[in-house]
Design a protein around this nucleic acid. Structure first.
Lengths: 218, 218
DNA sequence: CGTGCCGCTGACCGTCCGGTCAAAGATTTC
DNA sequence: GAAATCTTTGACCGGACGGTCAGCGGCACG
């Protein structure tokens, strides 16, 4: 994730073959993207301020704008770096694998991402909530294509009677909803479980195992 | 929902027994809250501007501030009006009813709310995403109490072997996640299903019926 | 029909915020 | 160690935004 967010797609031009970046460039760009992720995910795009991002990054505001052309550019760099990483677990579903195991593994990886990268999840959630003004294309293109592809794989498994015949797209939606909920609504989850609740994730993992185990059994 | 958002808790004082509001007061306050719901849910608190809310409401900005003390006050009025309505379906779960039917009815009502009141759902999602700066108390108090109560009911049903023994709190989280997903991530759902997908909700209802049917079977 | 209150507004204020710029350090290169 | 280049910053700008205010209009009631 970090690597991706730093390097890829920070230049909109197609020829990003060799963007020669010095050590100090890499360090500061990374610090800015880290800080921006922190602030954007917690406050949303409009809620975030360059001053705040600069403060978190330990840089001055003009220095920020020396590395990125604008607030927009920082946000774009984060988002475009994010999508690929975010979809990796879905891509990893193997059509040749054992159906239930493949899907269960996807669920677990996705829940793991909610635990390990909650800020990325919230950044994404913020964007979609507002109608994805800066990601429409990627969602209607890349994302849809990948989901359609995997939905076809699932349909194949179902036709062979290897898992239950539930709607493939909605199955994928349910995995997204259930796993990302623990990142996006973390505050609510913890508040409802109470102060003595401890880490919600182990119990969530057990619950999701049961849920999808029962849902997928043919 | 509209009624609740208009009347309740717009006055912080305890003595809101008889706030004598003229016909024109009621009409304009309602118009403002409607417009604010539209704008806040689509742009978030910081993203919304008083000018924009005034424009949508068909009033001037100073006129807005004649009815509400501040942007904060409008937001608070919306949120506090919302929570009660939002929790009504959960409250309606009847301990004396048939367990699976009660929970399935809750799922359906909640999905219905995602379809009929997506703006309310997004307003709520926005608030939680940002750490619920203006709802912490209500969530840790009212909401937690109600969930704990219903979790106890579910545990009772499970102890009697009438539904499967899954973690009650996480069961409720899963209902929230799965139903609200169709409101909060509506844009993504429709984009992935594609232009010919039509209304996602009927298929979602079928999918959730299957999912919770299988999950709850003892 | 006058008078008093409720509803409404244009003009304005101070602050915040994204972004610019000229110039002052660092750092690298030869 | 000087020239050239890269990095950093204080000061500033213009617009947006939340909020105020003095006063105007109209509706309601005697």
């Amino acid at each position: 994730m970090d690597k991706a967010a730093t390097d890829s797609a920070t230049d909109p031009e197609p020829e990003d073959a060799a963007p020669p970046r010095s050590r100090i460039q890499r360090r500061n760009r990374q610090a800015i993207l880290d800080a921006a992720l922190e602030v954007f995910s917690a406050q949303g795009f409009r809620g975030a301020t360059l001053d705040r991002i600069a403060e978190v990054a330990g840089l001055s505001k003009p220095n920020l704008l020396y590395y990125f052309a604008s607030k927009e550019a920082i946000h774009m760099a984060l988002l475009s770096g994010l999508l690929d990483t975010w979809l990796d677990p879905l891509r990893a579903i193997d059509p040749a694998g054992e159906p239930e195991a493949e899907i269960m593994a996807y669920v677990r990886r996705k829940l793991q991402m909610s635990r390990d990268y909650p800020r990325e999840s919230r950044l994404f959630a913020n964007e979609i909530l507002q109608g994805a003004p800066r990601m429409r294309a990627a969602i209607e293109g890349e994302l849809k294509a990948l989901v359609d592809d995997k939905a076809a794989v699932i349909r194949g498994w179902q036709a062979a009677g290897r898992i239950a015949p539930v709607h493939p797209h909605h199955l994928i939606f349910s995995i997204w909803a259930l796993t990302q909920h623990y990142a996006d609504f973390d505050m609510q989850v913890r508040a409802v479980l109470g102060p003595g609740g401890g880490d919600p994730f182990p119990e969530a993992a057990r619950f999701l195992d049961t849920l999808f185990g029962r849902l997928l059994a043919p």
